[in-house]
Design a protein around this nucleic acid. Structure first.
Lengths: 220, 220
DNA sequence: TCATAAAAATGACTGATGGTCAATAACTGA
DNA sequence: TCAGTTATTGACCATCAGTCATTTTTATGA
């Protein structure tokens, strides 16, 4: 029993090292220009071995996305523990997301890839895909919790259904963060170059919009 | 002169037919699972000819995206002609976007692909890419115009910078529409299946959020 | 310690596909 | 009709994801 456990631990560690290597290769070669041969070489293993750990290139990408959303969720989860009005929790989550993207743009690229292949229907019902979906549900739940807290403490008006509002905020946030990401990373996208703004103010503006959109009007 | 013009017209028509064929293949095979051989066969031309019209598969995808955003922009442009308060223009644009996605999900997939490859930096400075960027700027400008109109007529508060708010709304809209798209298309994405909502109400909710977030408070 | 079996690792190989180009067909104007 | 120009073609090439027969390493037990 102990022996098996040790093997399994070693396997997990090695798996993680492979993901590290993959990220490293992608950093220099670009996300989808990285080849499995290069990744195997970077991880100092044979190509066949790589396929023992990840059944396909897509599965490897998903594993990266999985790790990324796990890291992000850890941070989002901690925000929920703070003693703050719901609306401030939403705000903090927004900036947490922004900082994550700034520090780990590669993971953000992986997120997008995850959604892209989910669209295509590939990898449906595989364990790694289930994990990724689980993380997505978790992130979504954090937002809904914050909304519920806000509706309790009066900082967010109750006219919205929290779950539907959660989907809206989740989607809208990703879209805005994507803009911020483009502004930060792509040297293309002239439209964003022309407009002078920084990420912080973009996200601040977005959150301000949400804040006043969700604000309890205190009328009656 | 006349002859050259006729040739060019024929070329444009043929190019359009190829795009039609490509869309047809993608409809059945999935967006990126469509091969250039299949597309050539569907267009009833040789593979080499296909490459005379589109320098790469990516260029072909971009051409699809270009056509899609041109069609969408036509509709958005018409909204701006309506005699309505700015806030209502924004609302109409939102539903225009939603309907477009519902009717032409393939173009929406192409939009996403366009952004994806813009990220990767491929195709930078090619004519087709410039065109796509031009369309993006145009769409963005429609939003900013509507915001400016709203600030003039008092339906939108003036505390935001219209351009920055434009980027925010543009990004947020795309994110929310993407959620709607996932809900509508993917039979995966359990999280969205669990939550009971329809596209109309999701987008309505989003617009309601924007509306009250941007509303002129009429205080002073 | 050695022998044997089981498990892990490997990289040469295959198939699929994006992209090229020399050869061919079609067209044009005299 | 014919020379020259332009358009079209599909056989061919290079790349890369994914496979599998073989080799290497590890575990077991006498």
């Amino acid at each position: 029993m102990k022996k098996l456990s040790r093997k399994e631990r070693e396997r997990v560690i090695k798996r993680d090292l492979i993901i590290d290597a993959a990220l490293h290769v992608m950093q220099s070669k670009g996300f989808e220009h990285a080849t499995m041969d290069e990744i195997a070489e970077a991880a100092e293993i044979g190509k066949g071995t790589l396929y023992l750990y990840f059944k396909s290139k897509t599965a490897l990408y998903l594993a990266i996305s999985e790790r990324g959303s796990r890291l992000l969720n850890d941070q989002l989860g901690k925000v929920l523990l703070l003693e703050l009005p719901g609306i401030s929790l939403i705000e903090k989550m927004g900036f947490t997301y922004l900082n994550f993207i700034r520090e780990s743009p590669l993971y953000f690229t992986a997120f997008n890839y995850f959604e892209h292949i989910m669209n295509e229907g590939k990898m449906a019902n595989t364990p790694i895909m289930e994990q990724c979906e689980g993380h997505a549900i978790e992130a979504m739940t954090y937002i809904v919790r914050a909304l519920q807290i806000g509706m309790q403490d009066g900082s967010i008006k109750k006219s919205f259904d929290p779950k539907e509002l959660g989907v809206i905020i989740w989607g809208a946030s990703k879209g805005v963060m994507h803009m911020a990401f483009l502004k930060n990373n792509a040297n293309h996208m002239k439209i964003l170059d022309d407009i002078d703004f920084d990420l912080q103010s973009l996200v601040s503006g977005f959150i301000e919009l949400l804040r006043s959109g969700m604000k309890n009007d205190l009328k009656s």
